[in-house]
Design a protein around this nucleic acid. Structure first.
Length: 444
RNA sequence: GGCCCUAUCGUCUAAUGGUUAGGACAGAGCCUUCUCAAGGCUUAAAUCCGGGUUCGACUCCCGGUAGGGUCACCA
């Protein structure tokens, strides 16, 4: 049943970078709106002038853009004070609210309080069913500091009303705010929107995820080389699942399959490992050219540059090892792949095979390998041919006795890609040269 | 503490009264392999507890327990 009148909103306060906790709310509100061919609104809730910052507003905007969540309408709460004031005056005139003369921090301070009828309020939540709360203990709560400065509770209700928001999709931490907002709605004569209170995104300690708990900003995931599709896919499946065993969904599929009523009721821990897995999956689906460009960009950030020929060949080796592009930078910085460009430095004992750590034997074997490799022509100098040339001999001697010394003298490392691919990348001349150097050291 | 919400493998979840309780991530093992990574196969691992309702409960009801959220002139 497509409903053209559905309007949802994402209403963050610009008091910090947009992180996963808030972000998932945006995803669900977006999916719900798009699925129903409705409208998705971004509203910046900046009534707190002290804490709201322009840079955070920009961060929200660019994060949503990066993730591909387009909104149909944009507004700022601070620009709507005229409307708030009008409603406020009205509430006072009709006796729903009153100016109260009080003290704050020892100074006189007038505030506007809502005259609480003290009833029980019941509302229907799309995810949790009916929720009832007694509002008496709320007393006459504050709805504005003065006519010019409404408090959030009032501003939300008026904005939702004036923007025609039909579905309020927000975090579970707002459940207890709902009854008082409903009270205000009734006073101003606004229709009650349908509520959907989402379960919280949790830190590993099972408490609400927050910046303080180490939640990374969306923009930080971007900077660490995560793919937006991966983050989106991961977040959408945090607390919701279409059933079945599929894990990878495009935004389009998510919109089609989304079912707000199947959202989980309990909170979900944000699992970094699984996010990485999603990222790897999406990386695998990227065109080779793009992966190449991004990996080389990361290498350049680390101040490393390989000649284009080498770069192209080591690319697949790097891609195998990373789950985010940021890790390519780490590899570059670690110097792990420097041996492709420069002669490696290593203790000669390291080339000795584990089983038979004899210098003379090892030198003999390397000489034999050198001879065999010399027989491979430049034209045929590739991984497969190199392996072919050495394999039988290595098998005869014991592969570990031959291949370990070969690999170490080429790379200088305990752990590295296999010697055949290294040899291919180094080229015939350099390969033979490195073997020669090792043999000389063994004889020394 | 008051009020509110929640409860399936370690984690994310599937199964809306009848399944050997399924999948994914992480873990373990094996294969491949000179090493590392990747890949393939296999495996371990859960219905919070107690009462009902029912021929039959993960599923419905009640009570515990545990966890979380919220109690601002913040949003």
């Amino acid at each position: 049943m497509a409903n053209k009148h559905i309007v949802t909103r994402f209403a963050p306060s610009p008091t910090g970078l947009l992180h996963a906790g808030n972000y998932r709310t945006a995803v669900f509100a977006y999916l719900f709106a798009r699925q129903n061919k409705g409208k998705f609104v971004l509203r910046i809730e900046d009534t707190d002038r002290e804490r709201s910052k322009k840079e955070y507003e920009e961060n929200v905007i660019e994060s949503l853009k990066w993730l591909g969540l387009e909104y149909d309408e944009f507004s700022r709460q601070s620009e709507k004070v005229a409307g708030h004031k009008k409603h406020l005056q009205n509430l006072i005139e009709k006796g729903f609210a009153y100016i109260s003369h009080e003290e704050k921090d020892g100074k006189p301070s007038d505030v506007i309080r809502f005259k609480n009828p003290g009833t029980k309020v019941t509302f229907k939540d799309l995810i949790r069913g009916e929720i009832t709360m007694d509002t008496t203990d709320l007393h006459d709560f504050v709805i504005a500091k003065n006519l010019e400065e409404p408090v959030w509770h009032l501003a939300v209700v008026i904005d939702d009303f004036e923007m025609g928001i039909t579905h309020v999709i927000r975090g579970e931490d707002h459940i207890s705010n709902t009854p008082r907002q409903i009270l205000i709605q009734r006073a101003i004569g606004a229709p009650e929107p349908i509520y959907a209170h989402l379960p919280l995104v949790l830190a590993p300690d099972r408490t609400k995820l927050s910046k303080r708990k180490g939640a990374l900003a969306i923009s930080e995931y971007r900077d660490r080389g995560y793919l937006p599709e991966a983050l989106l896919n991961f977040m959408a499946l945090l607390g919701w699942n279409p059933g079945g065993e599929q894990e990878i969904f495009s935004l389009k599929e998510l919109v089609e399959k989304f079912n707000i009523e199947k959202i989980q009721k309990g909170g979900a821990i944000f699992n970094e490992e699984k996010l990485k897995w999603f990222n790897e999956e999406y990386m695998k689906r990227l065109p080779e050219k793009e992966i190449g460009a991004r990996v080389s960009a990361e290498f350049e950030k680390a101040g490393k540059k390989f000649d284009p020929h080498t770069a192209k060949k080591i690319l697949p080796l790097i891609v195998d090892r990373i789950s985010t592009f940021g890790e390519a930078k780490e590899i570059a910085q670690s110097g792990e792949f420097d041996f492709f460009e420069n002669q490696p430095e290593y203790e000669i004992e390291k080339v000795l095979a584990k089983k038979e750590p004899s210098k003379t034997k090892t030198a003999e074997r390397l000489s034999e390998v050198s001879k065999l490799l010399a027989g491979v022509s430049e034209a045929e100098w590739n991984q497969a041919e190199i392996k072919n040339a050495v394999w039988d001999y290595a098998t005869k001697e014991g592969r570990g006795e031959v291949l370990w010394p070969l690999r170490v003298c080429l790379s200088g490392l305990d752990k590295s890609p296999d010697p055949f691919i290294i040899a291919e990348i180094l080229g015939k001349t350099e390969t033979l040269e490195r073997i020669k150097v090792a043999i000389e050291k063994l004889h020394a």
